[in-house]
Write a protein that binds this DNA or RNA. Structure first.
Lengths: 347, 347
DNA sequence: CTGAAAGCGCTTACAG
DNA sequence: CTGAAAGCGCTTACAG
């Protein structure tokens, strides 16, 4: 603790020769204060290195100037391995907050836990951003209850019809479709899908729907034996690829529901002496920084994380200001790298 | 905003049949409260879904229960590319905070900016963690002024003698030495160092000192032409490798001051048709997640980010509690992967 | 445009 | 072990 007593707005008021209320107004840029008074107050504040006590101002004004970012994830053995895609989102969310003058509180949570009280209800944050490959459906009632209590929440994830909460997400369906069409163009016909395509992973499910759509449009028959569940980790990708090989079904391509799954799968294929992309083309989803550096470089779908972060923050602030907000879907972009160039490298 | 009036400790007091002060004590687990009263208060609080207003409690108690994490970095063109090593640190710091019951506020800043007022002085955070390949020396006076004002700060970085602020860092000197010894054991004799080894990058400087020490111990002469400045980005690593090649000096190994530099350098070498590790062995520093997945997998130095995060938080909390704290250095670990196996793959 | 006063919801001596 | 009272440092009607 500093030895000196804390400097308050009363000290500034005395120094500037105005009332404490005027200090408060001047420092918040209220238009009620005359230009000259404001200058005098600002000079006094600067000379004493005064800063407004956020706790007091928040208590009085009922706003915190803070947003909370909650990462949802299953408990992982390795604490420090965060899904790289969400890291990129974290970066852009942080900067978007800074641009808007908001602070950002972050926290890692398990979806099943009782996290709601921690932020909005204790007035630490004015609103909450949820990030994660979340099965929000299962927790829909909780989200709904929060919303009813007046908590402002914006989710990143699958944008689905009939979702009562505001969601920003990329167009997973189109993404899945684009990747699959690209693989078909490479001459692949037995394209495996690695990822849990159930409603527990709504984003994966959408990507899978796009995959099915692309196959059907081209008249390629769908073989359920080519779909293997996986969650978004390398380990899970390796296991899924092992399971796929164990099934003995022939396949000439893998569309992994995320880059981490794809990278794990490539590892397994290599270990089995299977060449990528000559024998099996592989594509992922997310365009994590690693994607361009694995061997072979990974074809994937890029999401505009910078814009996504801005949209999450902007929409949450609109919600906080009681402005109309709707869920929004962002376009994605296919990034072709060597891992999927089945055609060029072989046959 | 919720339509209902906010529930306060007075409501709980009434429901539980005690005074408001007792509610406050019971909910904070004060030992002064009887077990039976506590239970009654907790039940009442739960039934009304009451949570303590943090702004009020912070204002009164003069503590925020929040730590601030400041990332220092130069402004980058690409918002979302955060150094992966710091991301791992972020993860472990966040979790360490959670375990201690603290919230974490995060912010990206440029070292040169006027950031000090933002957190500690406005009472938003009880203490600050600084993270970044920072040139803290240049900003030493600012740090010192903050400390004098009572701000609690802990830095991640180079642990140097005569540093008045508390720093946690890994043993960069030993790390640099281990890598260099390893490269020497592989038969390399012309080992380039890629990284700014000036006092502006104290961690790189320490790694470079370790490098020099290893060379001298083995009686290998140091050639200044083999040192090229680089900061910790792939782009910079590529440029440094280009510059090195342009000098025309023969070299059989590169020790890059960070993994990102190493990965960039490998890219440049490959583009020039130079085989790694057969013609040039390469090693980096940090063991970022990508390191094991590039081609060839990168030999590097691993820092225990989980433990580092814990130590940063623990030491900051000690500082906040006015307990004695000293700077500490953590051991590192050489991780040998294929990029440095010069010997085995050639000659 | 400015000031005097009330009050945000807690925690913490103080008293018993 | 519990209560009554003061007060943390602001913001915001209210009045002029």
């Amino acid at each position: 603790m500093s030895s000196k007593k804390q400097i308050t707005s009363f000290d500034i008021a005395e120094l500037a020769g105005v009332s404490q209320a005027t200090v408060s107004r001047a420092l918040r840029g209220s238009p009620e204060v005359s230009e000259e008074t404001r200058r005098r107050v600002e000079a006094a504040a600067a000379s004493l290195r005064y800063t407004v006590d956020k706790n007091a101002s928040n208590l009085r004004s009922k706003a915190s100037g803070t947003l909370a970012l909650l990462f949802f994830e299953d408990p992982t053995p390795d604490d420090s391995r965060i899904n790289p895609f969400f890291i990129a989102m974290l970066g852009s969310i942080t900067r978007a907050c800074a641009r808007k003058g908001y602070d950002l509180l972050i926290s890692f949570q398990e979806l099943a836990r009782d996290w709601h009280a921690d932020f909005a209800e204790s007035k630490k944050a004015d609103g909450i951003i949820l990030l994660g490959y979340g099965d929000y459906l299962t927790h829909a009632d909780r989200l709904e209850k929060l919303r009813a209590k007046g908590t402002r929440i914006v989710c990143w994830g699958a944008v689905l019809p009939d979702q009562p909460w505001v969601t920003i997400g990329c167009d997973n369906f189109q993404g899945g479709r684009s990747v699959t069409e690209h693989l078909l163009e490479q001459g692949c016909r037995r394209i495996a899908f690695l990822g849990d395509a159930s409603h527990h992973f709504p984003e994966f499910q959408e990507r899978h729907r796009g995959y099915l759509q692309a196959l059907r449009t081209r008249g390629v028959s769908v073989d359920d034996a080519l779909q293997i569940d996986a969650e978004s980790t390398q380990r899970s990708g390796m296991q899924a690829a092992e399971a796929l090989l164990a099934r003995g079904e022939p396949f000439d391509a893998i569309f992994a529901a995320s880059d981490l799954i794809a990278i794990g799968a490539i590892g397994t294929l290599s270990a089995h002496g299977i060449d990528v992309p000559f024998e099996v083309a592989v594509a992922g989803f997310d365009d994590i920084p690693m994607a361009g550096f694995v061997n072979p470089p990974l074809t994937t779908v890029q999401q505009d994380t910078r814009r996504a972060g801005e949209m999450l923050v902007d929409n949450l602030l609109r919600l906080i200001n009681d402005e109309p907000v709707t869920s929004q879907m962002m376009p994605m972009k296919l990034i072709v790298r060597r891992s999927s160039l089945h055609d060029a490298s072989g046959t």
